[in-house]
Nucleic acid binder design. Structure first.
Lengths: 215, 215
DNA sequence: ACAAAAGTGTTCCATATACACCCATGT
DNA sequence: ACATGGGTGTATATGGAACACTTTTGT
């Protein structure tokens, strides 16, 4: 770490959170409406500045909670974005986070501070700052993680049917999957265990499963 | 992005660079000796503070160049580290970068500003700050990228033998690979093309290859 | 009875792994 | 001539992809 340079006190650090959920088998992302300039009236990812004594993760959780009322079920760092000029107010480096919310909890957000809402993740409106780019990176990461870890479970309640889980995967990848292949892979992965409970579906009842093992 | 919070002007932004190279079939990482407190006399990753009007990538390249004289062949963002307390001087969020240098260029670094040197990446000394953690993350990323992209080529001169390339993979993964399987996978990947040149090896000459196609 | 989603196996193909010998050169 | 690393093929195991019918319930 160089000590032979004076500190540039004008660089600020923010966090932004890409919170995904599933609603009616569609992948949604949480956006907030900006009330003030710049980009007033436009949509942006929830986020804000990091406080002097909190970790980056804490800042991400706090901003999400304060701005939208939601508490993410899964949170991981995505990438940092710091091009000069990405924020017209000054030099802001943002650490982007990627978060998931189980579908049961996606009630409409409490409009405490700002207007927030769920938008189709695959067809989101144009966003403020470089948030389009951040969203695109988050989407790719989500698709990737889905195949290589059990991250899909964080989008469902703790008891779920296999068809519901498959719908999550289909919504994220944007194309249909083969039911039998999907189930075989799940068995092999030892990530789900059946329960004794059945879910009445209106037609033939479906067995409920629960998540086990490491994600 | 929250506007209802005053900006915490005490958060500084730095970059740190994990520069890998191959020397005598061993994976090495570039470390600098710290001349002043904190951690004076200890080793650390090269890095320093981001200037007000440069991109994060630019800061990474600049600090590497200034501190060690090296110019990375490949540079990509790794992850950001920002726990309060990671730097005893104050609140510093660092954006870590991951970089590669072809083995031909790993002459001893110019000791302009600080003492720098190459250390075994798998058995590096204890590092200042949280740089051990950063190095560990970089190593995992390197191993991962090696299998899923042509990143290994950035560690070799632009003409290389297949045995040299295999040695790079073995050094990074830390275990031997099967020669025929390794070569078959390369062919399938369409990432290398043979040249007409042969490299005299002291024994049977080896064909030189060059990198083609996307990495 | 019928509509609708739940559940269940097999075949085929591609990719990964294990393994051993001859070749060309410099000394 | 011999020592050294360069170069080459085959057989087996494993994982992914394609594909259709029966079952159970509510109406």
């Amino acid at each position: 770490m160089a000590d032979n340079y004076s500190l540039p006190d004008k660089v600020h650090v923010a966090v932004d959170v890409v919170l995904f959920t599933i609603q009616r088998s569609e992948l949604k992302v949480l956006l907030v409406k900006r009330l003030i300039e710049p980009f007033a009236g436009g949509y942006a990812l929830p986020g804000g500045f990091v406080l002097a004594d909190e970790s980056l993760e804490h800042a991400a959780m706090r901003e999400l909670q304060e701005e939208t009322g939601f508490k993410a079920h899964y949170l991981e760092q995505l990438q940092s974005f710091g091009d000069p000029g990405r924020d017209p107010r000054g030099r802001v480096v943002t650490v982007a986070y990627f978060a998931l919310l189980p579908s049961e909890q996606t009630i409409q957000p409490g409009t405490d501070a700002v207007e927030a809402g769920w938008f189709s993740a695959h067809a989101a409106p144009a966003l403020a700052f470089d948030h389009d780019r951040i969203l695109a990176v988050a989407l790719r990461r989500l698709q990737w993680k889905l195949d290589y870890s059990g991250v899909g479970f964080d989008l469902l309640p703790d008891r779920f049917t296999l068809s519901e889980l498959q719908a999550v995967h289909e919504a994220i990848h944007g194309h249909p999957l083969d039911k039998r292949n999907f189930r075989r892979k799940l068995e092999a992965g030892n990530q789900v265990a059946e329960t004794n409970e059945m879910k009445p579906t209106g037609r033939k009842p479906a067995r409920l499963y629960r998540f086990i093992g490491p994600r």
